[in-house]
Simulated scan of single mutants.
Amino acid sequence: SIPDELQLQILELCDMTTLAAICRTNKEWYAKASPIIWSDIDFVELSGDGAYDDGLIDQQRQFFATCSTRMDERPDFWAALAARVQSLKLTRMPGIAISYKSKAELNDSNDYIFIEIWPRDRRNIYDVIAEFKNLHTLYLFVKDWWEFSSIGESEKAVAHNLEKLTNLKVGGQINQDMMLALLSRPENIQHLSLINLIHSPGQDNGPNPVLFLRSIQKRFTNLKTLHMSKLAELTEDTNITGARWEFDPAAEIDLLEEWADFLRHVSATL
């Protein structure tokens, strides 16, 4: 008996878990809730205090596995779903390759492996993200332990398709070419957060910073908010032999000099 417009207002206040439950009620409620859940996919909201959550990571794994399966099996249906996505907010992603199996099915004892490390020659999360051509907000944090092999085609797809991106929050292990792909239209970016970015983990001499801003800094003409955080100076990780999470002094200076130069160019619009 509740008018349709009030029903939609109520649905828009629900989180993803509640919307997913509503979608399973019947066809009528699925038709009402599905467009909302696909327009704003928010795993960050489900993370609460932001603590590391194995279950939440596996939900994200399932999300990408489902998207990848739909791309292959029901391309027309997938195209309609992908067109709805305007905001995608992800928490920690332990890798970029898509796994179709849960941790239990992989029989893997490592806590951080939910998205398979190998093989790298198949579809990855960036290939799925590139399908969301109406995306205006993306939050992504990749926490991998290995260097990426070539993902040049993924970078091209991201650069070509994400024309409407205005709000970007990224962190973790994302290399220079992918950062440039995500920021292929810096003049559109209004809100930017760069958090603890590294090119690869520091098994020997510490991690390498991702330096990419100088080549595009003059094109940020509409930036309103900016958040930059360098890698925290943590002690050596005893669980992974030799891993270090501090920039060496020269790398840290290079990074801070690039940030200072970037701030000089964008300060007028912030």
Score class of each variant (00 low, 15 high):
residue 130 A to C: 14
residue 130 A to D: 09
residue 133 K to Q: 15
residue 135 L to Y: 07
residue 136 H to R: 15
residue 137 T to R: 14
residue 139 Y to P: 01
residue 139 Y to S: 09
residue 140 L to D: 01
residue 141 F to R: 12
residue 143 K to W: 11
residue 143 K to T: 08
residue 144 D to I: 00
residue 145 W to L: 14
residue 145 W to N: 15
residue 146 W to N: 15
residue 147 E to T: 10
residue 147 E to L: 06
residue 147 E to S: 13
residue 148 F to Y: 15
residue 148 F to M: 13
residue 149 S to V: 02
residue 149 S to H: 13
residue 149 S to Y: 14
residue 151 I to A: 05
residue 151 I to S: 04
residue 152 G to Q: 02
residue 152 G to Y: 04
residue 152 G to W: 00
residue 153 E to T: 06
residue 153 E to W: 08
residue 154 S to R: 09
residue 155 E to G: 06
residue 157 A to E: 11
residue 158 V to E: 07
residue 158 V to A: 05
residue 158 V to P: 02
residue 160 H to S: 15
residue 162 L to D: 06
residue 165 L to M: 08
residue 167 N to T: 14
residue 167 N to E: 12
residue 167 N to M: 07
residue 168 L to T: 08
residue 169 K to E: 07
residue 169 K to S: 13
residue 169 K to V: 03
residue 169 K to C: 04
residue 170 V to M: 04
residue 170 V to A: 07
residue 170 V to P: 02
residue 171 G to R: 04
residue 171 G to F: 00
residue 171 G to W: 01
residue 175 N to L: 00
residue 176 Q to T: 08
residue 176 Q to Y: 01
residue 179 M to I: 05
residue 179 M to P: 04
residue 179 M to S: 10
residue 182 L to E: 00
residue 182 L to H: 06
residue 183 L to E: 00
residue 183 L to K: 06
residue 184 S to L: 03
residue 187 E to K: 13
residue 189 I to W: 11
residue 189 I to P: 05
residue 190 Q to C: 07
residue 190 Q to M: 06
residue 192 L to N: 05
residue 194 L to T: 06
residue 194 L to W: 03
residue 195 I to W: 11
residue 198 I to L: 11
residue 199 H to Y: 05
residue 200 S to P: 00
residue 200 S to D: 07
residue 201 P to L: 03
residue 202 G to Q: 08
residue 202 G to N: 04
residue 202 G to E: 02
residue 203 Q to Y: 11
residue 205 N to Q: 10
residue 206 G to Q: 12
residue 208 N to L: 12
residue 210 V to W: 00
residue 211 L to F: 08
residue 213 L to T: 00
residue 213 L to Q: 01
residue 215 S to Y: 01
residue 215 S to H: 09
residue 216 I to G: 02
residue 216 I to W: 02
residue 217 Q to D: 05
residue 217 Q to Y: 04
residue 220 F to W: 13
residue 224 K to F: 02
residue 225 T to N: 14
residue 226 L to P: 03
residue 226 L to I: 10
residue 227 H to W: 04
residue 229 S to I: 03
residue 230 K to M: 09
residue 230 K to I: 11
residue 230 K to D: 12
residue 231 L to W: 12
residue 232 A to K: 14
